[in-house]
Design a protein around this nucleic acid. Structure first.
Length: 437
RNA sequence: UGGCAGAUAGCUUAAUCGGUAGAGCGCGUAAUUGUUAAUUACGUCGGUUUCGGUUCGAGUCCGAAUCUGUCAGCCA
């Protein structure tokens, strides 16, 4: 295939190359037409000079936004260009001349852009977000692979809920059976960790929660590591390592995209220099109570409750790194959490709150070890015990202390990008009231 | 699921007390050998979400529905 990509043009100065792509925008100035060509790797300005080839000039002038074209020309150094090079066009092949492309370089509303998501992803900003998402995922995979974790994906069709059925999507599964789309691979991860020692799952999960906020999707991607012979502290150490690895990688590989997004990178750089604070739930409550006393919070937080979005934001504002909050009251956590030996009312769980109001990006903890305790918990949470027999086998055959967590890819990506809403961090977001395109 | 806000041209929007729906962008033509969301001139296209009510008269007031945004709960 005779094709050069725009991000390689610097290596071809003086040479004649063929670029294949789409017309991002065009301008003309008398005897000149400027074609902004994009090919997925970048955007380059292609210049057509009228006196050099009049027919070519007329063709270039006629092109609509997003027309698909193949351009041949000579690569020329030019300091006026943002990428340092331009193309002097000598040949143009029009694959399809598009007209009336709906997304113009001007401003549009959210609803319109979401309805045209299939086209919106061609825009510079969306392009940058998707590339950063790619890097977040690649860094995540590399981190676990390089630290002795084995990828062991868990099923998407599941026979029963791992935390009750109210927030599950139900689907028909042949004959009279029902299946549910998984909301977490966690219970299965515990089984693979018992086989492989350290394992992780990475895939889409589904939540039928009727949440309409900037942090929620009904379908999102989650990475879930699980470690045998591990405790709560190990979860926090692993989570901190993962986040720092991702931040480092994004800063190293996606500078250009962060610039397009006007991300304040000093905020990301700052977190690399320090350990993430680890705040006990009791202490977090104290911080919230002080916040209320100072008039900076509307509600007086009571010990025993779960944090709301304003609470999370307030806690994370006290630090300029992500913060772990640990030892939550057991009553607000799922049935499978291990308890604190000295204070059994506390669960050995830890959540990581991202800075700048991005909220919880990691949730995890140490899993219950004891068979009898788990059986009681399943009963207390009104869960059907027979569905969990296979899970309980883990406590019958070689039970070990083990721990793990889940990290949401979209929330992490939104934070890296510094964008408001997670809907832009996945090519086709699925949300309450939005299933198209 | 609840609170709040909104729905006017392909897009972004304006319209005072209830009285002729207006602009910018886009698109077309022309000018410009250096434009970066190009500019300038001329031109073109066209619209009050739906249903019902009040009124001489409704984009505007009232009621309902639908859709969207946003905040909250829950969560990653």
């Amino acid at each position: 295939m005779n094709q050069t990509y725009i991000n390689e043009l610097k290596n071809h100065i003086g040479a004649e190359v063929t670029l294949k792509g789409w017309l991002y925008n065009s301008r003309s100035s008398g005897k000149l037409v400027f074609l902004q060509l994009r090919d997925g790797t970048g955007i380059v300005q292609c210049v057509v000079f009228k006196p050099a080839n009049e027919e070519l000039f007329e063709q270039a002038k006629s092109l609509g936004q997003e027309s698909s074209i193949i351009v041949t020309g000579k690569v020329k150094e030019d300091t006026r260009s943002s990428i340092g090079v331009e193309l002097d066009v000598t040949g143009l092949e029009i694959i399809q001349n598009a007209s009336e492309y709906p997304i113009t370089p001007k401003e549009h509303g959210t609803e319109f852009l979401m309805d045209n998501r299939h086209l919106w992803i061609r825009s510079k900003k969306q392009h940058a977000v998707l590339k950063i998402r790619h890097t977040v995922i690649k860094a995540t995979r590399d981190f676990f692979d390089e630290n002795g974790f084995i990828l062991a994906d868990t099923p998407i069709f599941t026979p029963a809920a791992c935390e009750g059925t109210t927030t599950l999507f139900e689907v028909d599964y042949f004959d009279d059976d029902k299946a549910y789309l998984t909301q977490s691979g966690q219970l299965y991860n515990e089984t693979t960790a018992a086989s492989l020692g350290r394992s992780y799952a990475f895939g889409p999960v589904f939540r039928a929660e009727k949440s309409k906020t900037r942090r929620h999707l009904t379908e999102f991607w989650m990475v879930e590591p699980e470690m045998a012979y591990a405790h709560l502290d190990d979860v926090m150490t692993l989570g901190e390592g993962l986040i720092k690895f991702i931040v480092e990688r994004v800063l190293a590989d996606r500078r250009e995209e962060l610039t397009v997004l006007e991300r304040d990178v000093t905020k990301l750089e700052a977190i690399l220099a320090q350990g993430f604070p680890r705040v006990h739930y009791d202490e977090a409550v104290k911080i919230l109570k002080e916040g209320f006393a100072k008039g900076e919070l509307e509600n007086d937080f009571e010990w025993g409750g779960d944090f709301g979005a304003p609470d999370e934001t307030y806690i994370s504002k006290q630090f300029d790194a992500p913060v772990f909050v640990h030892h939550f009251p057991a009553v607000i956590k799922a049935f499978y959490f291990e308890r604190d030996k000295e204070r059994p009312e506390l669960a050995l769980g830890a959540d990581l709150l991202a800075p700048e109001g991005y909220g919880e990006i990691i949730g995890g903890g140490e899993r219950a070890f004891d068979l009898e305790f788990l059986e009681k918990q399943i009963e207390a949470h009104n869960l059907p015990k027979e569905s969990f027999e296979w899970y309980l086998d883990l406590r019958r055959f070689g039970a070990v202390p083990h721990a793990g967590f889940g990290m949401g890819i979209e929330r992490c990506t939104a934070w890296m990008c510094g964008i408001e809403h997670v809907r832009e961090t996945i090519p086709f977001p699925r949300m309450l009231y939005r299933l198209k395109p």
